[in-house]
């Protein structure tokens, strides 16, 4: 389980958020949405224990599987070397990774379907490949909690689709408490059970995904009108997507 209870974070006299409470139990996935600068990243930092709370408490395992937006970008190490780093907490200060740690790391790469990246140098990978390696590293920690900082924001559509499928398959295993932030409400529809909306006025609302992802709440959240749109899936099924009213405007 991972979550906050009555948590507040302040920078000097500025309050980033006040009295936030939510809990993500094992087996559920929660998306966090909010406008730029509202404090999503600070919320994740507080959740992971990098940011001290002005009040309240946090619930989290000793190490959470954290997938940063940009990780280890300078490292001239192989994909497997990066994933093995997920075992750091088991190794301790003077420990060296053993064959067992490499096996765990290879297992994590298998789970994300990225075995082919094991021997590739991390600094030569594309953004999508790095994302898969970082997700494998989060799994290699063995933590029951996974935290993703905007896992789709820097990716092209193909990699977004792969990442969302992976997020959803991790959700459906029901072994993890998953939290991710996103700017696209459709990504919450695709991979979350619950949603926390960080409203622009400073309040937060949370609930099951189908109560939160609806035009009324999202219009308030982003300050633009939102609409449901029918989308035909790959095998002809009709699904509903939610888009801003400006979608489809043609400049010419």
């Amino acid at each position: 389980m991972i979550g906050l209870e009555n948590a507040s974070v302040t920078f000097g006299s500025r309050t980033i958020f006040r009295n936030i409470s939510f809990r993500v139990p094992k087996g559920r996935s929660m998306a966090i949405l909010g406008p730029n600068g509202r404090g999503k990243t600070t919320l994740l930092r507080a959740l992971l224990g990098f940011q001290s709370l002005a009040s309240g408490r946090r619930f989290a395992p000793k190490v959470a599987g954290y997938v940063p937006q940009h990780g280890a970008s300078q490292a001239k190490l192989t994909g497997l070397d990066i994933v093995v780093m997920g075992r750091a907490v088991q190794l301790g200060l003077f420990g060296q990774p053993t064959a067992k740690d490499r096996e765990a790391a290879e297992g994590a790469l298998v789970q994300v379907g990225a075995c082919h990246l094991a021997d590739m140098r991390y600094d030569r990978m594309s953004g999508g490949q790095r994302q898969m390696v970082l997700i494998a590293r989060a799994l290699a920690t063995g933590s029951p909690a996974l935290v993703f900082d905007e896992p789709t924001s820097a990716l092209d559509l193909g990699n977004q689709s792969r990442t969302l499928q992976l997020l959803d398959s991790l959700r459906l295993r029901r072994e993890f408490a998953i939290i991710f932030t996103t700017h696209d409400p459709n990504h919450a529809l695709a991979a979350a059970d619950d949603v926390l909306l960080m409203m622009p006025d400073g309040g937060e609302v949370s609930g099951p995904v189908h109560e939160m992802i609806e035009p009324g709440k999202l219009s308030t959240l982003y300050g633009v009108p939102m609409r449901w749109v029918d989308v035909q899936g790959p095998v002809g099924e009709i699904r509903r997507a939610i888009l801003p009213a400006f979608a489809g405007i043609e400049a010419a």
Binding site: F50, V63, Y66, P68, A88
Partner: peptide
């Protein structure tokens, strides 16, 4: 690694 990334790994 970046400090926050290292912290996240314990």
């Amino acid at each position: 690694l970046e400090d926050s990334e290292a912290r996240s790994l314990g």
